[in-house]
Design a protein around this nucleic acid. Structure first.
Length: 285
DNA sequence: CCCCAGCCCTGGTCGC
DNA sequence: TGCGACCAGGGCTGGG
């Protein structure tokens, strides 16, 4: 599922592929997938795409607003197809990209140069949300205000301040987008394994050494995720339809029953905060 | 404020 | 082969 590295990968590709293009038409094929009036975006020129936690923010030239917020949730994809149905970067076009729209296409954004941007989303949890002013923006992003792991704000001290505030399991705490931005289930599992911390441990019970280790591990796995273009576990795809590679480097995620890379004992799967949790009972204390 | 259960969705899997 | 129950999960809502 798309987390910080996956969303960041797509964001960078979008800035290459669609920045500078004007939106000429928007088709909403499933009403829940688009919140707001899509016609407000017509004729606006995309200036750049930012990111806040797992949310992408489309901004437009000479307009502070509207802005378009895109959240992929679990199965959302943004796929770019140019007017010749060729891919960005010159890769061979996967058949399914040439055949878009598919039955999972929820929104199509048409660009002035003849290209189309497809928002596909099998489970319809993802959203394109139009915000018209600062008040709406603040409301829609109110739960995504956590510290960004790859910025100067992600200091040991700031991390400690956030984690000491809650008695919830540490895994739940680092996945709380109000505390830390962009960490989802894959990278939470892998970071806790790397830091050798039991995912059930109450966040405020971690000592400074453990917190610093975990902070470093979050930074490490998120950076690795970006390096490999994210993880294609099921639906996640790059802008050109191809998959990421981080799934070949999972430390724990979906590896229950496999030997721990550190101690060799079998990784287990439990449920923490209602989410599947993969870890090593022997070396995560 | 804090925390958690239930909900939104669809497709894949499993048992019968 | 088919059918129904169940599961996956990020984030929102409502209730304790």
């Amino acid at each position: 599922m798309p987390e910080l590295p996956e969303v960041e990968t797509i964001r960078r590709q979008l800035n290459q592929a669609v920045a500078g293009q004007k939106i000429t038409k928007i088709q909403v094929l499933r009403s829940q997938s688009f919140v707001g009036n899509p016609s407000k975006l017509l004729k606006l020129q995309i200036s750049k795409i930012d990111r806040m936690a797992k949310m992408m923010i489309f901004k437009f030239k000479n307009h502070k607003f509207p802005q378009l917020l895109v959240h992929l949730r679990m199965t959302g994809q943004l796929i770019y197809q140019d007017h010749k149905k060729r891919l960005v970067g010159g890769h061979p076009t996967p058949d399914w990209v040439e055949k878009l729209p598919s039955k999972h296409t929820r929104v199509i954004i048409y660009l002035e140069n003849g290209a189309r941007l497809f928002f596909n989303d099998q489970r319809v949890f993802g959203r394109l949300t139009l915000v018209n002013n600062q008040k709406e923006f603040t409301y829609q992003t109110r739960n995504f205000v956590g510290i960004e792991p790859l910025t100067a704000q992600f200091t040991p001290e700031n991390f400690r301040l956030k984690m000491q505030k809650t008695a919830r399991p540490i895994k739940v705490a680092i996945m709380d987008q109000k505390l830390i931005a962009g960490v989802g289930n894959i990278y939470a599992n892998d970071a806790l394994w790397d830091a050798q911390i039991n995912p059930n441990k109450p966040a405020k019970n971690l000592n400074n050494t453990e917190l610093e280790k975990l902070r470093n591990s979050i930074e490490k796995v998120i950076a690795l995720g970006i390096k490999y273009g994210g993880a294609t576990d099921s639906d996640y795809r790059h802008l050109d339809g191809l998959g990421g590679k981080y799934q070949d480097h999972f430390l724990t995620y979906k590896l229950d029953g496999q030997p721990c890379q550190r101690c060799g004992s079998k990784l287990i799967k439990t449920v923490v905060g209602g989410r599947g949790t993969y870890w090593c009972k022997k070396c995560q204390k």
